[in-house]
């Protein structure tokens, strides 16, 4: 298992957001996490690369104990790429600058090496010709693809996607999903929090349904979508599909 989270609890003040979540992800697997807003999906994702510190539990990624005090978290995070709902590109840098920064400052590459690797990453998301553009000169879909390039440039073992298409206009969603699909075909392990059910249906290996800080059920997409075991899952999927 390349990702192994056990017994994850997370409290925000008196809010109990995660109530003992176990999640195991195999290499090359694409796991889709769905559930109502406030169910803890994003928090779970953020616990995996320790953007949130879990209140209890253990997280291992690619053999590294993410929560151990001795772990060099900045080094470990290179193996876990993350893509955010609001892109979070650095507005004062070009697309290439966004992608190359961590290559230079974290991976220790020279400027020339970092630029070459950064361009290759932009090429993979189809935006090599936008390398010198600033984020504000790009469409939302292009910005999100640059954000994906920024993450994959570090050659992570796992990619986390936190609602990557939720902030996009509908006509721009397809380009981002296409990049995610090609990433999947290249064998990337991916954990995706999203409401793109059609994408989940034909690209995911497994769908995980979360509700109220717990994983209620999980299984192959067909089983979860066609034949959910829980009433809550059925209600949620019915709601999503009506839209």
């Amino acid at each position: 298992m390349i990702v192994s989270a056990k017994g994850i609890h997370k409290h925000f003040g008196h809010l109990h957001v995660l109530k003992g979540v176990d999640l195991e992800v195999a290499e090359r697997e694409l796991v889709f996490v769905i559930g109502p807003s406030g169910s803890g999906k994003s928090t779970l994702l953020r616990c995996l690369n320790r953007l949130e510190q879990p209140s209890a539990g253990s997280v291992t990624v690619d053999g590294i104990d993410m929560l151990a005090p001795a772990t060099d978290i900045n080094h470990a995070r290179q193996r876990i790429g993350m893509v955010f709902q609001s892109f979070n590109l650095y507005p004062h840098m070009t697309a290439l600058g966004n992608v190359a920064l961590a290559l230079r400052k974290v991976a220790g590459k020279s400027r020339a090496e970092a630029d070459a690797l950064g361009l290759a990453a932009l090429e993979r998301v189809g935006l090599a010709d936008r390398a010198t553009h600033r984020p504000l000169e790009l469409s939302g879909g292009q910005q999100q693809r640059v954000a994906i390039a920024r993450a994959i440039a570090l050659e992570p073992r796992v990619m986390l996607f936190d609602e990557p298409t939720s902030a996009l206009d509908p006509e721009l969603v397809g380009s981002v999903l296409a990049v995610m699909r090609s990433l999947r075909e290249s064998g990337m392990t991916m954990i995706v929090v999203s409401h793109e059910m059609a994408f989940a249906r034909n690209a995911a290996d497994r769908v995980v349904f979360m509700d109220d800080g717990l994983i209620l059920e999980q299984g192959p997409p067909a089983a979860i979508f066609e034949n959910p075991a829980h009433e809550r899952t059925r209600a949620f999927i019915g709601q999503i599909q009506r839209h």
Binding site: L51, N74, F84, S86, N88, Y90, A107
Partner: peptide, 11 residues
Amino acid sequence: GQVEAARSTGL
């Protein structure tokens, strides 16, 4: 989100 993105890449 700017800090989170930066930290997620290992900065």
